[in-house]
């Protein structure tokens, strides 16, 4: 349940583009055609799915205060969290380079479709932002970190796909000259972001359900306790009666 909730939350509610404006630069620059938008979106999902879990491991075992305790008790007081920016960005840049080499070697067709976008991605705010939000939201396990990476990647993919499709169509409309191109894209993105805000209500219902269940559970516990008390008082009474006899 936790996984499903985080997955939908990172796609729709905390959508990288519409809620936090991450990766806007490439979102605006590469969204003129649907085909290139799909390529870049796929590359972002791919890289986020690799770097977020990797940076989670880095954060958990090297950077957090006290994370170095696995090296020995004398390292337990170390706090390297000030290094997280430089470590994260180095990981991302290295991974992007590695992914590029591996993809080129093993799947030339994938390289032809993703290849030109991979270098762009090292400086895409969405990738670093994914890792930084992973750190600041204190995601608990490696599985959840992977989930978060893929979820936010898909959210970004959906966003760029949608705006590319709209921009292809809007070419035939008569937009005021000064708004053509960049201006209208900004305003459309704003309107889409307002639309995406309505997803904010998606999870509150689930929360209420969970609370009701908790309540029901606590009521059951209380009932059980009452039953036990009754039972004990009954047995006490019986005991008392027996002794009276």
């Amino acid at each position: 349940m936790e996984h499903v909730e985080l997955f939908f939350k990172s796609i729709f509610i905390d959508n990288m583009v519409f809620a936090t404006f991450l990766g806007m630069c490439s979102y605006l620059a590469v969204s003129k055609k649907v085909s290139t938008a799909v390529g870049l979106g796929a590359a972002v999902i791919f890289v986020l799915a690799i770097t977020v879990p990797l940076n989670w491991l880095l954060d958990q075992y090297i950077l957090q205060p006290g994370a170095l305790s696995w090296l020995g008790a004398e390292y337990a007081s170390y706090d390297l969290s000030f290094l997280s920016f430089i470590m994260f960005i180095a990981t991302i840049a290295t991974m992007v380079q590695l992914v590029e080499i591996v993809v080129e070697k093993f799947s030339p067709s994938l390289y032809n479709s993703l290849g030109i976008f991979l270098p762009l991605i090292a400086v895409n705010c969405a990738i670093l932002g994914g890792s930084l939000f992973m750190q600041s939201r204190e995601i608990a396990t490696l599985g959840l970190a992977l989930n978060y990476g893929i979820g936010s990647g898909i959210g970004w993919f959906l966003a760029i796909l949608a705006i590319a499709a709209i921009r292809e169509k809007i070419r035939y409309s008569s937009v005021p000259p000064a708004l053509r191109g960049l201006g209208i894209t900004f305003i459309i993105t704003g309107l889409m972001a307002i639309g995406f805000m309505s997803f904010g209500g998606m999870l509150t219902g689930g929360d209420e359900g969970a609370k009701k269940e908790e309540k029901a559970a606590s009521i059951e516990v209380i009932e059980e306790e009452i039953n036990k008390e009754e039972a004990t008082t009954k047995s006490d009474l019986e005991l008392a009666q027996n002794t009276n006899k």
Partner: peptide
């Protein structure tokens, strides 16, 4: 947050209306 996008969109609109050379 969406209003930030729309405000920037309006700034671009104003700027390009004043300087026609920038129009795409």
């Amino acid at each position: 947050s969406p209003m930030a996008l729309i405000v920037v969109g309006i700034i671009i609109w104003v700027q390009r209306t004043r300087n026609k050379a920038l129009i795409e």
